[in-house]
Amino acid sequence: MHKRVHYNTSYLPYLLVAPQITITLLFFIWPAVQALYQSFLLEDAFGLSTEFVWFDNFAELYDSENYLNSFTRTAFFSVSVAALSMGFALFFAALADRVIKGSHTYRTLLIIPYAVAPVLAGTLWLFLFNPTLGIVPYFLDIVSINWNHKLNSGQAMSLVIIAAAWKQVSYNFLFFVAAMHSIPKSLIEAAAIDGAGPLHRFRTIIFPLISPTTFFLLVVNIIYAFFDTFGIIHAITSGGPGNSTEILVYKVFNDGFVGLDLGGSAAQSVILMFIVILLTVVQFKYVERKVEY
């Protein structure tokens, strides 16, 4: 028999979840519905009249080379950010597993970037890479690399990738460390007795065993790169030079609030919404399926 606690008052649970529901409705569902509605509207340049145009905004996006370019750019950006930040995080986590002295400090230091707000992170990297004042361009100049991300679109892209990846390293690091911790020590010892060196152990034992975490992080990082990097890009390049760092979410902002094409911008955000829903579904599907070794 199950023992259950019964509350006689039936409104209490509703009361308790009410704040969360209100917030969700007010700040998530309502704007989403608005965006969906707006994406079907065409507004004239002065905002005086609106017209219901069905899927015209989407059709326009489909034909827009600019938008499709932004799509590939975003894909490149996300994959780069995910690869870079996960690569470094994995490396640091592997080291953290071996560090004995001062491991606490080591870990704390690695977690700090996560606490930095995106815009601040962007500004930080902006200072470091400032073509006239920054310390990195100064050193790059010595090896005769001329750094100017305000003119060079490749450099601009590299910089936002680095900044975005840097911020995410901590998060990935924490998950990797936790995953490595959950591998029984005796497995590693058994492999050591079997004659595997540290690198071989990492490749054949540790890495395969943390693969569920790696997959989880991959999805999380891609979502992060898609959506949460707005602040960083805004602070560093504002999407420039040209459109070279204008990823999808930045384009939503640019077209909507700068270009004042509200309908088009709304259509873009609806597409983004479907992408994130898709990614989340993929992730849940995978996580729910008990990982099989």
Binding site: L187, E189, A190, A191, A192, I193, D194, I205, P208, L209
Partner: peptide
Amino acid sequence: LEPKDRGISMVFQNYALYPH
């Protein structure tokens, strides 16, 4: 000597089989 160079084999309490 490293464990692998001692010519030993060990059976652990939790077996420590590679699960994957």
